[in-house]
């Protein structure tokens, strides 16, 4: 799989070569995904992501809608309890709503954004005299009670007598063998392979992909970041932000777009739906990510927005038009309010 990815990457580089033997190769290229994964592999995004202020701003962008959080879900075989109906006073109802909000907060906890984990290849000892003892690799897993999966000792004795630390895929496999997590499979499901993933993406099953990759992989796994970043790029290109809104994946999506300076589509979406406050929140985040001055003063102003469009945006035309339309709409609303007041004889 990794080899295939590498291959397609090489192809992406070679695509415009004028070599005569490129023709059969380009057929293979057409069958793979058009997006390349963009992992967090250089600087560590974790300090930025776990910053309390940034977390709360990302949550604002998520726009919590309780109806969507508590929507009907596909739960497979799991049977739901029958609903209970109660007569309650107003106070009790308020309390229940508060409880629901707290629970929604838990349900909307964002999957962490981390740097890709480093390689694990420490060799503990070499013993060439053991060569020929067995053709198989012996994997030793420490199953002592109460150890976390991440701290567990897992080592391998190779047929050539080397005793080495297990690499990440092997560790994941062994942890799943001896301490299975519900929902996670021993082999990654086929849906995460490029050709199947593409079908899911065209069907816009983003939530399914992201939920399942959360269960299947660790957040600092290369595969997790490959699947999620490809999905985020697809969402961004097709303007499908509404599908992910009010889910736990909107924060990481926004984080990804901010990190790679690709917020224009999201900004356009926000302006067109008259969510100028959220647009300003997005710009505040942009300031913090890239250490630039946009002077976001009020959440209802469009000044910072105009400054951003002038200096940093790649889609200046459409964004300017959207801002103009928004301003006209606001003006119209104000005018109508004034007229109404006049008619009612208030002003």
């Amino acid at each position: 799989m990794a080899a295939l990815r590498l291959f397609s990457r090489c192809l992406a580089l070679k695509k415009y070569d004028s070599l005569p033997n490129i023709a059969p190769v380009s057929i293979i290229f057409n069958r793979t995904l058009k997006y390349l994964p963009k992992e967090y592999n250089e600087t560590d995004p974790a300090p930025l992501f776990f910053n309390g202020e940034i977390q709360s701003l990302l949550k604002t962008l998520t726009r919590v809608n309780l109806n969507k959080v508590y929507r009907r879900r596909k739960l497979g075989q799991k049977k739901l309890d029958l609903p209970t109906y109660k007569f309650v006073t107003d106070e009790q109802l308020q309390e229940m709503m508060k409880d629901a909000e707290v629970k929604a907060d838990e349900l909307l906890q964002m999957p962490p954004v981390l740097k890709i984990r480093g390689v694990r290849d420490r060799v503990l000892s070499r013993d060439p005299a053991l060569q020929g003892y067995d053709a198989a690799t012996y994997i030793f897993t420490d199953i002592t009670f109460g150890i976390k999966n991440i701290d567990r000792i897992i080592i391998a004795r190779e047929p050539d007598g080397t005793l080495r630390e297990a690499d990440w895929p092997l560790r994941d496999r062994m942890n799943q063998v001896y301490f299975p997590l519900p929902g996670r499979e021993l082999k990654p499901p086929l849906m995460f392979q490029d050709n199947y993933l593409e079908k899911l993406l065209t069907r816009k099953e983003y939530e399914f992909i992201l939920d399942r990759s959360c269960i299947q992989f660790e957040p600092d796994d290369l595969d997790y970041q490959r699947v999620t970043t490809i999905t985020y790029q697809h969402v961004n290109d097709n303007n499908d932000f509404e599908i992910l809104r009010s889910t736990r994946h909107f924060g990481p999506l926004a984080f990804f777009l901010l990190w790679h300076k690709e917020i224009d589509n999201l900004l356009l979406d926000l302006i067109q739906s008259s969510q100028i406050q959220e647009a300003n929140v997005l710009l505040q985040l942009y300031e913090k990510f890239h250490k630039v001055e946009l002077n976001v003063t009020g959440l209802q102003n469009t000044e910072a927005l105009e400054k951003y469009i002038k200096e940093f945006s790649n889609k200046r035309g459409s964004l300017e038009l959207a801002v103009q339309a928004y301003k006209e709409l606001e003006e119209e609303k104000k005018q109508m309010e004034r007229d109404l007041k006049h008619v009612h004889g208030v002003a």
Binding site: A136, T137, F140, T141, I143, T144, I153
Partner: peptide, 10 residues
Amino acid sequence: NEKLVSLNLE
């Protein structure tokens, strides 16, 4: 091609 061993080291 692996033989799996688990040990409760403690």
